[in-house]
Structure formats: structure tokens, C-alpha cells
């Protein structure tokens, strides 16, 4: 099929504009992160790059290293707790035709639509009386709540796509269901499970509301630590940008790793 040069040119221009709009805020943040404070207040691109901001955010009084550690532990623990439980449930939802299946599945899914701000109120009160406010444990618990239903949904999409044949053959040969799950389904679903794990890591890493309400100092994660750079002296943009780079780079790398599966998994889960 031939297309006119004009429509091809228009398409190229639109896509270039889209890339520009998508990238510009990110590129600007990266540039600002390497500016000294004086240059940060100037939109000129002609500046002497410096690494000083990255040194500053890791030293007193900002100590972002601690928030980085918190973010990593909280996101990691959330993934480790939610993925195994979600994978088992997803398998059950995908393979068994139980009577209550449909309503159970939708009960799980609809909890995903409950706003976080509703869940956080009781948790705040509960953690307060247990003395768990401002701890990583508290953050892991609430994040698992949000992530698990979502991951069940995603992994189920991936398991649905695995053909039943090899599973049935193995069962014919007398393998137990649990063996089939361990030796056949899990290896085949591994790309999907890894994708879901990375996805929930990203969700937890970026999570802001819980961390804002449930932490003060000790368990603050990176997104909340960002707000510390709003000081009485005004906003310290060059430091905020450096912290932004710190938050963004690991997530961008993870997102690019799962890029292909990611788009497929998302659409499969949501549309099917």
C-alpha cells in the first residue's frame, strides 16, 4: 500500500513531537541534576557540569543513602511476599473451574479499586497502637495489600496463555498437581512472573501516599525524601533533580528490561 510523501512526513513530525514531549521533562531533570545551584535558576544550556549535587544528597543533612536503602528493602520485601502467593492464586484461577471462581476472582480484583487513602486510615491507627509507625514493616504490609491483587491479575493473564497440553501429559504419567506446577508451569510462566515482579517493584518503589503518612524519619522512602528539599530557603531544585535521577535510573532500567513483556502483559491482563 502506497502512502503519500506528505502523510508520511506528517507522521514523522508527529512522532518526533511525541518523543520530545515524553522525554523533555526527564531530560531537563537530568540536566539540572548536573548544574551548580546558580545555573539551576537559568534555562541556558551553556553550563559547567558538576557532580557536586550527588555528593551533597548523600551527605548530611540529606543522607539520601538511608532513604535509598529503605526504598530498596521495602520494594524488595513486598515483591518477595506478594509474588509467590499471587502466583499460586493465579494458577488456581486460571486452571480450575470452581463454582465460586468468578465471584472470588472479581472480589480480589475489585479490592484493587479501593482508594489507598481509605486503607491507610485504619492502618495508621493500628500501627500507632502497635508502635509500628515509621518502620519498614508497616510500609511492606500496606504495599503488599495494594500489589497482590494486581499481580494475581497479571500472572493469571500469562498462565492463561500457556497451553494445557504438556501439563495434561505429565498428569497422565502420574505426576501430582503440585509437581506439575513446580516443574512445568512455573518454568513456562517464569518470564511472566518476572515481569509481574518487576512491575510490582516499580509500583512499590514509586509509592508515595503510604510512605508520606506512615513514616517520619527512619523509614522514609525516596519519593517522600524528595519533599525535604523544599526548605525555608526555597526549593533546592538542583538537589531535587539529583534525587530525581537517583529515583528514576533504576526504575527506567527495569522498565526497559521488561519492555516487550510489559506492554503485552498489561494489555492481556486488562482487556481479557
Amino acid at each position: 500500500m502506497k502512502r503519500s510523501v506528505l502523510s508520511r512526513a506528517a507522521e514523522t513530525i508527529i512522532l518526533l513531537v511525541v518523543c520530545f514531549v515524553a522525554l523533555f521533562p526527564i531530560v531537563w531533570m537530568f540536566l539540572t541534576a548536573f548544574k551548580n545551584p546558580r545555573d539551576a535558576y537559568d534555562i541556558s544550556l551553556n553550563f559547567q557540569p558538576t557532580l557536586q549535587n550527588f555528593v551533597t544528597i548523600f551527605s548530611n543533612p540529606w543522607n539520601l543513602g538511608h532513604a535509598l536503602l529503605n526504598s530498596t528493602i521495602v520494594a524488595g520485601a513486598t515483591v518477595l511476599l506478594s509474588i509467590p502467593a499471587a502466583a499460586l492464586a493465579a494458577y488456581s484461577f486460571s486452571r480450575f473451574r470452581m463454582k465460586a471462581r468468578k465471584s472470588l476472582f472479581f472480589a480480589v480484583i475489585s479490592t484493587q479499586f479501593v482508594p489507598a487513602v481509605v486503607i491507610v486510615l485504619p492502618f495508621f491507627l493500628m500501627f500507632r497502637s502497635l508502635g509500628l509507625l515509621d518502620t519498614r514493616i508497616a510500609l511492606v504490609v500496606v504495599n503488599v495489600a495494594i500489589v497482590t491483587p494486581f499481580v494475581i491479575w497479571m500472572i493469571k493473564g500469562f498462565i492463561d496463555a500457556i497451553p494445557l497440553d504438556s501439563e495434561e501429559a505429565a498428569m497422565m504419567d502420574g505426576a501430582s498437581r503440585l509437581r506439575v506446577i513446580r516443574d512445568i508451569v512455573l518454568p513456562m510462566a517464569a518470564p511472566g512472573i518476572i515481569t509481574s515482579a518487576i512491575f510490582s517493584f516499580i509500583l512499590t518503589w514509586n509509592e508515595f501516599l503510604f510512605a508520606l503518612i506512615l513514616t517520619r524519619r527512619h523509614a522514609t522512602t525516596l519519593p517522600v525524601a524528595l519533599t525535604n528539599f523544599r526548605t525555608e530557603r526555597g526549593d533546592l531544585w538542583e538537589l531535587m533533580s539529583a534525587a530525581g535521577v537517583l529515583i528514576t535510573v533504576p526504575i527506567f532500567l527495569l522498565a526497559l528490561v521488561i519492555q516487550k513483556h510489559f506492554t503485552r502483559g498489561m494489555t492481556a491482563g486488562a482487556v481479557k
Binding site: P25, I26, I202, N206, W237, T248, A255
Partner: peptide, 27 residues
């Protein structure tokens, strides 16, 4: 260019919403 755009589009979605707010306030 199409494939490149698809890859680029992942980035805004992966960015922390709190950070998006901060960077827009700056811009």
C-alpha cells in the same frame, strides 16, 4: 521511529508520580 517511540513511552509511565509533580513545579 515507531519502535523508538514505543520504547520512549515506557519512561513517563515508569516515573514516580510524586517526582513528576516536583519536576513540573520546577518547569
Amino acid at each position: 521511529l515507531h519502535d523508538f517511540t514505543r520504547i520512549i513511552l515506557i519512561l513517563p509511565f515508569a516515573m514516580s508520580p510524586a517526582l513528576i509533580g516536583v519536576s513540573y513545579r520546577f518547569m
